[in-house]
Computed example of a mutant assay.
Amino acid sequence: MPATSKAQQNAAGAALAAKRGEQKVSSLKGASKSMYDSMSEKELEEMASTPRRGKPQHASGS
């Protein structure tokens, strides 16, 4: 599942770092905390590694 915005990609990267023990889980907030709780490390890695070119800063709320 690719990220749809840079913000979503950043949140996935933060959640992935926490899953790997590189960042404290208590430092996660909002979307990154939700992603940490609901997604596997593999899913987070796929989302965080999505190419950034052409992505909006935030996804439109459609």
Results as ranks from 00 to 15, higher is better:
Ser27Leu: 00
Lys42Thr: 05
Ser34Asp: 01
Ser27His: 01
Ala12Glu: 08
Ala59His: 15
Met1Lys: 13
Ser27Trp: 06
Ala48Glu: 04
Tyr36Phe: 14
Lys19Thr: 01
Ala14Arg: 15
Thr50Pro: 04
Arg20Asn: 09
Ser38Phe: 10
Glu46Tyr: 14
Glu22Ile: 00
Gly21Ile: 01
Tyr36Ser: 06
Ser5Phe: 00
Gln9Ser: 05
Ser5Tyr: 10
Lys55Cys: 04
Ala7Thr: 14
Ala12Ile: 11
Ala7Phe: 05
Glu43Lys: 10
Met1Gly: 15
Ala14Glu: 12
Val25Ile: 04
Ser62Phe: 12
Met35His: 06
Arg20Pro: 07
Lys33Asn: 03
Lys19Cys: 01
Thr4Cys: 11
Pro51Gly: 06
Pro51Asn: 09
Arg20Val: 01
Ala14Phe: 02
Gly30His: 02
Glu45Gly: 13
Met1Phe: 06
Met35Asp: 10
Thr4Pro: 03
Ser49Glu: 08
Ser62Asp: 13
Arg53Ala: 15
Arg52Gly: 06
Gly13Asp: 13
Ala59Tyr: 13
Lys29Phe: 10
Ser38His: 11
Leu16Met: 12
Lys24Val: 05
Gly30Tyr: 02
Ala59Lys: 11
Ser49Arg: 08
Lys6Gly: 04
Arg53Met: 12
Ala48Tyr: 08
Pro2Ile: 06
Lys24Glu: 08
Gly13Gln: 11
Ala17Cys: 07
Lys6Asn: 02
Ala17Gly: 02
Ser34Phe: 09
Lys19Asp: 02
Lys33Ala: 07
Gly54Phe: 07
Ser62His: 08
Glu22Trp: 01
Ser26Lys: 02
Lys29Thr: 08
Gln23Val: 02
Leu44Arg: 10
Gln23Tyr: 05
Leu28Pro: 02
Gly61Val: 09
Ala14Ser: 12
Gln8Pro: 07
Val25Ser: 00
Met1Asp: 12
Ala12Cys: 12
Ala11Val: 13
Met1Arg: 14
Ser32Lys: 03
Ala48His: 11
Thr4His: 12
Leu28Asn: 07
Glu46Leu: 14
Ala18Val: 04
Leu44Glu: 07
Ser26Asp: 00
Ser26His: 01
Arg52Ile: 15
Leu28Cys: 05
Met35Cys: 11
Thr50Met: 08
Val25Gly: 01
Met47Thr: 14
Thr4Glu: 14
Tyr36Arg: 09
Lys29Asn: 05
Thr50Asp: 13
Gly21Lys: 00
Arg20Lys: 11
Ala59Met: 15
Thr50Ile: 12
Glu45His: 11
Thr50Trp: 11
Lys55Asn: 00
Gly61Tyr: 09
Ala59Gly: 15
His58Cys: 05
Lys24Phe: 03
Thr4Phe: 13
Lys33Pro: 00
Lys29Ser: 06
Ala17Glu: 03
Lys6Glu: 05
His58Arg: 03
Met47Phe: 14
Ser32Thr: 01
Ala31Asp: 03
Ser32Leu: 09
Glu41Tyr: 09
Met1Pro: 14
Lys19Trp: 03
Ser38Cys: 08
Ala48Asn: 13
Ala7Ser: 13
Pro56Arg: 02
Met1Glu: 14
Lys24Tyr: 01
Leu44Pro: 15
Ser26Trp: 00
Leu16Glu: 04
Ser40Asn: 08
Met47Arg: 15
Ser5Gly: 01
Asp37Pro: 14
Tyr36Thr: 01
Ala59Ser: 15
Met1Val: 12
Pro2Gln: 05
Arg53Val: 10
Met47Tyr: 11
Met35Leu: 11
